[in-house]
């Protein structure tokens, strides 16, 4: 079955071992990733990103997008790379799920294409944080590109934020 997908790179190079996110998995698979076109509300260029102290590492900050406040998620950091300061002008995939809007910061947009979908090999699936991809698309040359599930990604981020909030409250004794 053909899927309309956005192909992109989450980070410039193959992610290394995570520094600040020990719970995140190290990606061994190809650096190319895919997103179902229907899951993407728009592809935007980020403006000034305001850093949010006490947020977990993958949350780069908050950005204003036509008047809406949108949290920026560093997709590379979610997948295990170390986080970098957000750069103005970086591309981002804008996703809306369950009334939550989020901008997933990526390194580069590669292509938009209709590609055949298949089950993601378990070896590649295991290298990603649980449930973030179950399918793949077959790119030119036969390479399998994980098809990210943004609902799972948002849930994963929500859990990271909740954990960080509890940890901060416990340390600061603010509860």
């Amino acid at each position: 079955m053909l899927r309309n997908v956005v192909l992109f790179q989450a980070c410039a190079a193959r992610p290394g071992a995570p520094e600040d996110a020990p719970e995140a998995a190290h990606v061994e698979g190809p650096p190319l990733l895919a997103a179902d076109l229907r899951a993407i509300r728009e592809i935007a260029t980020l403006g000034f990103v305001t850093f949010v102290p006490t947020a977990p590492t993958p949350i780069s900050g908050v950005v204003q997008l036509r008047g809406a406040l949108v949290p920026v998620v560093d997709l590379a950091a979610v997948l295990g790379a170390s986080s970098e300061p957000p750069q103005q002008g970086a591309p981002a995939l804008i996703v809306e799920r369950e009334q939550t809007l989020a901008a997933f910061r990526i390194h580069a947009l590669v292509n938009v294409a209709s590609l055949p979908a298949t089950e993601l090999p378990s070896a590649v699936a295991r290298a990603l944080p649980a449930g973030l991809a179950r399918e793949a698309v077959v790119a030119d040359g036969g390479a399998l590109v994980p098809l990210l599930e943004f609902a799972s990604l948002l849930r994963h981020c929500a859990q990271l934020v909740a954990t960080a909030a509890r940890a901060t409250d416990a340390v600061q004794g603010a509860t």
Partner: peptide, 16 residues
């Protein structure tokens, strides 16, 4: 703030 960041109790919201 976004529902995603709502658990972060340090913030009462944001402005532009």
């Amino acid at each position: 703030l976004s529902p995603l960041l709502a658990p972060l109790s340090l913030y009462a919201g944001a402005t532009i």
